[in-house]
């Protein structure tokens, strides 16, 4: 009997060990966030540190929800991330369709310009972008943030969808066109259903990018009314005073939506990634 490499005990042990190391590497910070958020302030500073709370408390969550503006920041983050995702996916889909299916002068340049736009570091862009948003009168507003985030999510979504749509045979479009469909109908009724896994992946990445964004949120919003989670968290670090319990409780809450969305869309995510959207 031939014993495959994968069934050798040593190989399996090595594999399990490697996975365990990767899991610890990935999950340890999340574990520490959760555990710290359940400790008292005194225990957080205990030395040696405790790996498990000696006294469980939900006090930090109580403070975060009851005595800070964190619920408002959470709502703002959600609105900005959803708004950005919808707009980025719609614009990105239209742009990707145009680039992959239509013939026009400068098509290749436009495609490359989209990548170039995505690669520009935000630190270079924030002052010019501030000027533009100031002119539009949308500084310190959620709309301003959505517009700012579209500067990197639209190129990202477009580029990803270009790759995906190129894997979809043009025969499908042509058949629909022969049946009398116009371009928009082809896109909505033929390509979008076929590209659904790709769209889900793109939407997830756009949502995550908008949810996690920090620099623009910090610079373009002033008032608490327009602050998102990332910029709101900074308010819990006051000079050399870090309110670790509250920071960790807020982080634990901030992780939850992205985690839930990824778990719910796991099937599409794998399908979308393997089907070519990010090849």
């Amino acid at each position: 009997m031939i014993v495959g490499r994968r069934s050798r005990p040593l190989y399996r042990v090595g594999l399990v060990l490697a996975i365990a190391v990767l899991l610890i590497w990935s999950l340890a910070p999340i574990y520490w966030i959760l555990v710290t958020s359940l400790k008292t302030e005194k225990e957080i500073y205990a030395y040696p540190p405790t790996a498990w709370p000696e006294t469980f408390t939900l006090m930090q969550y109580g403070i975060v929800f009851g005595r800070t503006r964190f619920p408002l920041f959470l709502r703002n983050s959600m609105m900005v991330a959803i708004g950005t995702t919808i707009a980025a996916v719609v614009i990105g889909t239209l742009a990707a369709y145009a680039i992959t299916r239509m013939r026009f002068v400068g098509r290749a340049i436009v495609a490359r310009a989209i990548v170039a736009a995505y690669l520009l570091p935000p630190a270079l862009l924030f002052i010019p972008l501030f000027l533009v948003l100031q002119q539009f009168g949308v500084i310190d507003s959620l709309t301003g943030l959505v517009l700012a985030y579209l500067t990197f999510t639209v190129p990202f979504c477009t580029w990803m969808l270009i790759g995906y749509l190129r894997t979809v045979p043009t025969d499908l479009d042509e058949a629909a066109r022969i049946d009398g469909a116009n371009r928009m109908q082809v896109l909505i009724h033929v390509l979008v259903p076929v590209a659904a896994p790709g769209l889900v992946v793109v939407a997830l990445f756009a949502f995550t990018q908008a949810w996690n964004e920090f620099l623009y949120a910090l610079i373009f919003t002033y008032s608490e009314a327009a602050r998102t989670i990332t910029s709101g968290l900074v308010g819990m670090m006051m000079g050399d005073v870090f309110i670790w319990g509250q920071v960790m409780a807020a982080c634990a809450i901030a992780i939850a939506p992205v985690l839930v969305i990824y778990l719910a869309a796991q099937k599409y995510l794998v399908e979308g990634l393997t089907a070519g959207s990010v090849k």
Binding site: I127, F130, Q134, L218, I219, V234, G235
Partner: peptide, 21 residues
């Protein structure tokens, strides 16, 4: 009144002065 964290005040002021606001 706008509360600005110390680690971003330079960036915010730079942007605000640049924008003339």
């Amino acid at each position: 009144y706008v509360v600005v964290p110390a680690n971003v005040i330079n960036d915010r002021l730079a942007a605000a002065f640049q924008a003339g606001a």
